[in-house]
Design a protein around this nucleic acid. Structure first.
Lengths: 156, 156
DNA sequence: ACTAATATTGAATAAGTATACATCATGGGA
DNA sequence: TCCCATGATGTATACTTATTCAATATTAGT
C-alpha cells in the first residue's frame, strides 16, 4: 500500500495527540513530519477517517476520531495482526486468510469498528469474507482495515 | 427572557429529532415553526449550544447535541424546576434562590452539564452561587441554565 | 423618562471545507 | 510493450460556516 496509508496513519496520530482545528493547521503539522499535501487531500482524508468536529471553549472546534478509531485494544490488535495472513479480492468481495482459528477474532475487531465501507463480515476458521458497500474500492477496504488494526501496515 | 431563548430551545428540539447537516437547512426548518432568522444567527446559536458535527455515511455530517444537552433526566429536571425560585446577579456572580433543601440537587444538575460559561457552583441549603467565566453575560448564563433545565423557561 | 451601556441580529464578507475537473501515476490485460 | 481503467492528488472553485461591522432593540441607572 502506498503513501496514502502512511498519511492516514499520521493524521490519526496527530489529531489524537493535538487539538487540531483546521485543515490548514493539519497541513502544517504534516509538513513537520515531512509529508507535503494540500488542504483538498486532507479534506478527503478526514472524511475517510470519519473524523468528528467537537465544540471547544478555546478553539471553537477540534477534530476528534470516532470511538472505534481511537487506540482501543492494543493486545487484541497485536493478536489479530499476528494471525493475519493475506487479503485478496474477487468479484467485489474481500477474502482474508488467517492462521487457523484466528478468523472470528479478527472479524470481530472489524465488526466492532463498523467502518462505513463494509456492510458486514462472515468468519469461518481461517477465512473471513468482507462484504464492501457498493462502489467502495479495494484500496479503501485495505486502508480501512489498517486504520482498525495499524499493525497490519507491514503485512499488506 | 426574550425570543432568543425560544429559538435556542427550538434548535435543540429540531436537531435532536432530525439529522440536520447545514445551517441553511436549519434556517428552513425553523421557518416551518414560524421562526425567521439568518444563517449568521444560527452559526452563533450552534456555537452557544456546543453542537458537534458528526460524520455520517449518507449526509457527510450532521449536527449533534453534546451529551450533557441531550434530554437526560426529566424527573430530576422537573424536580429542580419546581424548587427553583429566582436568579439574580451581583458583581458578576449569579445567585439562585431555591426552596429550602433544593440547592444542592439543582447545582448538581448544572455541574453535570458543565457548560463552558460557568466555572463552578457552590450550593448551600436554599442558595446557589454561580461563578461565570470571565466575559460571560447574565443572559448567557440564564440561557445556559434553561438549556440544562428547560422547565425553567417560564420561571425566568 | 432619558441616557448610556449592552445585547441581538442581519448583511456583507472572510475563513474554512468539499468537490469538479485535469493531470499524472500505476497496474492488468491484449 | 502498449493501452486502458483506476486511483491519487493538486488547482480552481463552489459551498458552508464564522465574524466584522452597522443598525436596532433592550436594559439599567439616574
Amino acid at each position: 500500500m502506498g503513501n496514502k496509508t502512511d498519511r492516514l496513519l499520521a493524521i490519526k496520530n496527530i489529531i489524537s495527540k493535538n487539538k487540531v482545528s483546521s485543515q490548514e493547521e493539519l497541513v502544517l503539522l504534516l509538513e513537520k513530519e515531512g509529508l507535503h499535501y494540500t488542504q483538498a487531500t486532507l479534506s478527503r482524508d478526514l472524511k475517510f477517517l470519519k473524523v468528528n468536529k467537537i465544540a471547544d471553549p478555546e478553539k471553537g472546534y477540534f477534530y476528534e476520531l470516532p470511538d472505534h478509531h481511537q487506540v482501543s485494544n492494543e493486545v487484541a490488535e497485536n493478536y489479530a495482526a499476528q494471525g493475519f495472513m493475506s487479503i485478496e479480492f474477487a468479484n467485489k468481495l474481500g477474502v482474508i486468510k488467517t492462521l487457523p482459528g484466528y478468523a472470528s477474532s479478527i472479524a470481530s475487531l472489524i465488526d466492532k469498528a463498523r467502518p462505513f465501507e463494509i456492510i458486514g463480515t462472515i468468519a469461518g476458521d481461517d477465512t473471513i469474507l468482507i462484504i464492501p458497500k457498493e462502489g467502495i474500492t479495494e484500496n479503501d477496504i485495505i486502508n480501512s482495515l489498517i486504520m482498525i488494526i495499524p499493525e497490519l501496515r507491514n503485512k499488506i
